[in-house]
Write a protein that binds this DNA or RNA. Structure first.
Lengths: 140, 140
DNA sequence: CGCCGATATATCGTGCCACGACATTTCCCC
DNA sequence: GGGGAAATGTCGTGGCACGATATATCGGCG
């Protein structure tokens, strides 16, 4: 039947797959919403990361890279596209001129606000299923 | 201070951003693990989706597309790459010859088993933080 | 106070992957 | 048994991340 090598059961695989499916549903919703708002999915994620940076953390290129879990030089390229799209402005940190701080334009603020409201709604809709799966994660 | 248009507070933005950050951490872990196992991230996700298909659902190209939330013709291309990499075999469904059923090769089985064990561990590690954020999602 | 390693950002070529538009095969049903 | 629908397949295009490499700025130490 199963043909499963280590201790993994078919239910383990299904649970992992189901978790990924829920993630993909959320991400697909997010991608569609961003596209409808005239942003690429990554641009939307970047705007949110900049606006939602933890307290006391400056929205620099490097910190953006950390929050998106990409390499710093990929964040540079993302910042290029954001700036070119008129969503972000670069300013050099006067205290450390190697650092580049990113600020949202009013246009970006507005689009992010609308998108964030939608996302909070979708999250409320999906969290029950996500919670159900995650709570099983610890138990055998 | 805030300059937030609709009812969104800075804490809302931070919560959304933090959620995305946790997702990215999990996904980055997954991408690294897949790459280390000699798979692309998408190939790994596909293998899991095929192996973890819900009971009674055949692992066809179309169903793979559904579970990964991509277009059917993108799943075709993914199946091409999987087949070429020796991870998957195509067989026509005798009951409906339009359908193509995907089956994992032994090599794919083995790699997926190892990866899935790692992922279950990582999920156990991350679920507390995810649960913490999701449980706040309903409350104002 | 001038040099050097470390840090932050930037540039370029490459590959994965998803998409839209379109084509082909097989099914289903009237 | 013919025509529309469904499942899969093909091709060109664009976004995005990466490794390798380059440049600017900082900080400390002799």
């Amino acid at each position: 039947m199963g043909r499963n090598a280590p201790g993994l059961t078919d239910r383990d695989y299904r649970r992992l797959a189901e978790f990924r499916f829920l993630l993909r549903r959320f991400l697909a919703f997010s991608e569609a919403a961003a596209t409808a708002a005239g942003l690429t999915p990554r641009q939307h994620q970047a705007l949110l990361a900049i606006k939602g940076m933890p307290e006391g953390v400056a929205p620099t290129i490097g910190h953006l890279a950390e929050r998106l879990a990409i390499r710093p030089h990929s964040a540079v390229e993302l910042a290029d596209r954001l700036e070119q799209a008129g969503l972000v402005r670069r300013t050099h940190d006067p205290a450390d001129r190697r650092r580049v701080v990113l600020t949202l334009t009013p246009d970006a603020q507005a689009r992010l606000a609308a998108l964030s409201a939608e996302h909070l709604g979708e999250l409320r809709r999906l969290s029950p299923s996500l919670l159900a799966i995650l709570e099983h994660a610890d138990t055998k």
